[in-house]
Design a protein around this nucleic acid. Sequence first.
DNA 1: ATGAAAGCGCTAACAC
DNA 2: GTGTTAGCGCTTTCAT
Lengths: 352, 352
Amino acid sequence: MSKPTIRDVAKVAGVSQGTASRVINQLPVKPALKARVDSAISTLGYTPNALAQSMRLKYTRTIGIMIRDFSVPAFVNFVKVAQNILSEAGYVLLLAASEDRPEREAEVLNAFASRADGLILTTNAARENSVEKTRSNLSLPVIMLDREPADRQDAILIAHREGMHDALNYLFGLGHKRIALITGNASARPARERILGYREAHAEHGVEIDDALIRTRNFSKEYAFAETTALLGSGNRPTAIVVGGVAMLPGVLRAIKTCNLRIPEDISLIGGTDPDLSELVEPPVTAIQVDYHAIGVEAAQLLLERLNNRIDPSPRIIKFDSKLVIRKSCAPPSSTRSAETELRSLRRSSDT
Amino acid sequence: MSKPTIRDVAKVAGVSQGTASRVINQLPVKPALKARVDSAISTLGYTPNALAQSMRLKYTRTIGIMIRDFSVPAFVNFVKVAQNILSEAGYVLLLAASEDRPEREAEVLNAFASRADGLILTTNAARENSVEKTRSNLSLPVIMLDREPADRQDAILIAHREGMHDALNYLFGLGHKRIALITGNASARPARERILGYREAHAEHGVEIDDALIRTRNFSKEYAFAETTALLGSGNRPTAIVVGGVAMLPGVLRAIKTCNLRIPEDISLIGGTDPDLSELVEPPVTAIQVDYHAIGVEAAQLLLERLNNRIDPSPRIIKFDSKLVIRKSCAPPSSTRSAETELRSLRRSSDT
DNA sequence: ATGAAAGCGCTAACAC
DNA sequence: GTGTTAGCGCTTTCAT
């Protein structure tokens, strides 16, 4: 009892396969025949096989998005707005997570290769030749998201370097000298650019960098927790932390809470984007903010234009600025900080 | 210059299509021929067309998940663990969001119908006959997620009724009588069950229900914000709010903040699950907690067993309990609350 | 071990 | 306006 095909429909309706197809595709068919086909369709419960359709038609009306991880609140807006635009244009949006693992990236890319008409993706493929080969072999329009495209290709980039620079200027202005940076793997663009901005700002302000303050491995909140804990527990603790990642804030906040430190008295903090969390905790967290809504619009529209061949073939690189939203998590470093906080955390932990 | 096919490979290698196919599928081929095919593959940059493969083989090695919305932090764990298990078993996981819109549900279901071997889904189809027809017409294994299956079908259900009952018992125990419930659309199981639990608990404690305290339209945080604001602004304000939804907490917290009320002095709060947010805000929020990790494991394994025909065909219904995690957002209602909080909010707003 | 050919379900070109 | 048929790219008989 497998699914009925168009042949079954034709047979039951007593017409040819071609006529059945024409009814399904709303092409002109004499009413009497159309009625028979329609009734055959409903008695059989026929649905066209999308696989066979795509195979014949050479398009799928599907767009694939590959992202690192679904736990990134900022991506939610991005996906939602992209979905609305693409769905309006008649496409179905399918998502896959790479979990930042090269083998899964390749898998997903392959899965999408013949199952989608276009792709929006964040990949770390650059690191891995095998994945990069898969990617470059794709014969469909691809919009790279926050990744430097290896060859001639559309990309939407976020100005992380400038954003980090702004954040550091702000902290230097408050008098900080020991500023930690926690971000993801430097092999991918976002972290790499942030580190650049971090170094630039230090150079500009004539502050020497303590490399122990730069923590860069992955973007998870678990990693953020571990590194924050380590930084705060070290003898020569930073006076401020900048989080360069979009899902790391919970880990950093947990660590600060666990260490019984106060924001901003004991430690200043600039968070990655997480609109809800950063506004709802006490004190609200100053953050480097990116307009993911606008990025979603741009990515979807650019992809649609490519799909319709409506723009010249030279690759488009679009850059989005970030904005430092100042809330209440930063203050000047207290010069007597070190001794004072030791005392306070002692006092605190003794009364629990 | 379209993508090379297996025919191109065969031609370049000077072998038959069948032999090329055998090389690709690791079947025994004489080394000399195999070498020629391999070199043809790499010079052409050939990749098999997954569409054609699936069409021929009748399977796709793909699992689809349809959820309402990606903004639900709890789903993230669910998806992540399901992905790990399914990926281990050789499947690629593709996600789609229905945005709670029937027409999109139908679209997604159709898209998955011939593009996936199995489905995990949360649908409100029950409301919409057209969607339900699409669903019931699916000829692949489906695990329903937190939805009462219409016909004989596997499902994983969460004990929302019992969870809500527990939450209310706790609040009644603290002395609350006016308890608001904010949850999603009652046409779907989760909200319906929560309302049941709410009514049961009231009946049990002999407390009459003020229907104005039950707010049930959708699960978005924007809706939660609006309803919380309305409830708090009303003359006869509740003394406690229970949030019955997994992504609503930010909206509720924002509203309480905007109204300048304090938790738990002015208003007690029990939140839906959002592990990070509920633990990191001040005070930490008591919550009805569900183990989405375990649910992900169960869903993935059940689906795999179905795909392998390894279990008897009678539908499995698996129920997961929730747990009330008591933090610090609930306190007895203050009898003089009304006058007092009016004063406080006046004082506060005057010093901003 | 290999080649020739059928056929998965569909649409479109062609003939009537 | 309708029926017949080729062919999308692939795997798998069936011969050899």
